[in-house]
């Protein structure tokens, strides 16, 4: 068979480590994520000014030695606000997809492996969730439970479940047809063992790749919610709300909107690049990149 022919060529020769061929773009993306992540974690101990200290005498100042990236319309230090904003963006951006991927993966794998009524129930439930208007849902939750980081994370996380469920179910469906799963059943493996030992390692990598894309999307969604005033309430900074506030002075101080937009752009791009590279690596065969 054709498959065997390709495999035959590469057999029993140690595969080339794929990491060597990942390229500069991937490394730059990782570097940016690490930089922003460290800054966000260490924001409290970094020698930067408070993100909420007003200085009404130095409003909308361009970058200077005192304020490296200038000040906003209330005279708050932009660099500090961007770094504290990263805290919120990254917290929501990472935690929400974690909720989505953990629940979605479980549901999707169960649906794809057991099929039947369970699958119909899960797919139906996911469809209902998908049909629910996300903005209305976000409005309702924040209106009743309050605009906290936790609530926003929960809202975005739950909204992400359907996508992860579908990916996990699709991958599980195709894997369950493969002979190695039948082989495990023939060996007398229990369903849970097949799910954890045979299927999970194969479902995990596509899900991780999809997770990173989810992070990127979540950062944008959180920004959009904040921009609409549904996000973290002021004075706490978030990239989205900063863009919203900066919008008012686009003509005189464009950097107020552009800087958070640039940070968001670079972060989203970086997560996308890392996610795409990982997805290309999903295939364990050499040369799949």
């Amino acid at each position: 068979m054709a498959v065997l022919e390709i495999e035959g060529d590469t057999a029993l020769v140690s595969p080339v480590r794929k990491r060597h061929r990942l390229g500069g773009l991937f490394l730059a993306a990782v570097a940016w994520i690490v930089l922003i992540g460290l800054a966000a974690i260490l924001a409290g101990v970094l020698p930067i000014q408070s993100p909420t200290d007003l200085d009404m005498l130095a409003r909308r100042e361009p970058p200077s030695a005192a304020h490296w990236l200038g000040t906003d319309q209330l005279g708050r230090d932009m660099l500090s606000r961007l770094i504290y904003g990263a805290r919120i963006s990254l917290t929501v951006g990472l935690l929400a997809p974690v909720i989505g991927v953990s629940i979605g993966a479980c549901l999707g794998m169960l649906a794809g492996y057991f099929r039947g009524r369970l699958e119909a129930f899960i797919v139906g439930g996911v469809d209902v969730l998908l049909a629910f208007p996300p903005l209305v849902f976000a409005l309702a939750v924040t209106a009743y439970l309050g605009q906290t980081v936790l609530n926003i994370t929960l809202v975005i996380g739950i909204l992400g479940i359907p996508a992860f469920t579908r990916v996990a179910r699709a991958v599980t469906l195709s894997l369950s047809q493969r002979e190695f799963v039948v082989a495990a059943r023939a060996l007398g493996a229990t369903d849970s063992r097949i799910l954890v030992r045979e299927l999970l390692p194969n479902v995990a990598l596509p899900l991780v790749a999809f997770f990173l894309l989810g992070v990127a999307v979540t950062i944008v969604v959180e920004g959009a919610l904040s921009f609409l005033g549904l996000g973290v309430p002021p004075p706490a900074p978030s990239w989205g709300s900063m863009i919203g506030e900066g919008r008012e002075s686009l003509d005189i101080a464009p950097w107020l909107a552009f800087l958070p937009a640039l940070f968001m752009f670079l972060s989203v791009l970086s997560f996308n690049i890392v996610g795409d590279t990982l997805r290309a690596l999903t295939d364990p065969r050499p040369g799949a990149l």
Binding site: A186, G188, R197, P201, N202
Partner: peptide
């Protein structure tokens, strides 16, 4: 428990091995 006494070998040897183990 009975399965360990009966085994199966498949047509497509590559597909019947988990690619990640």
């Amino acid at each position: 428990l009975m399965r360990r006494r009966l085994q199966l070998i498949f047509q497509d040897p590559i597909a019947s091995l988990n690619p990640r183990r």
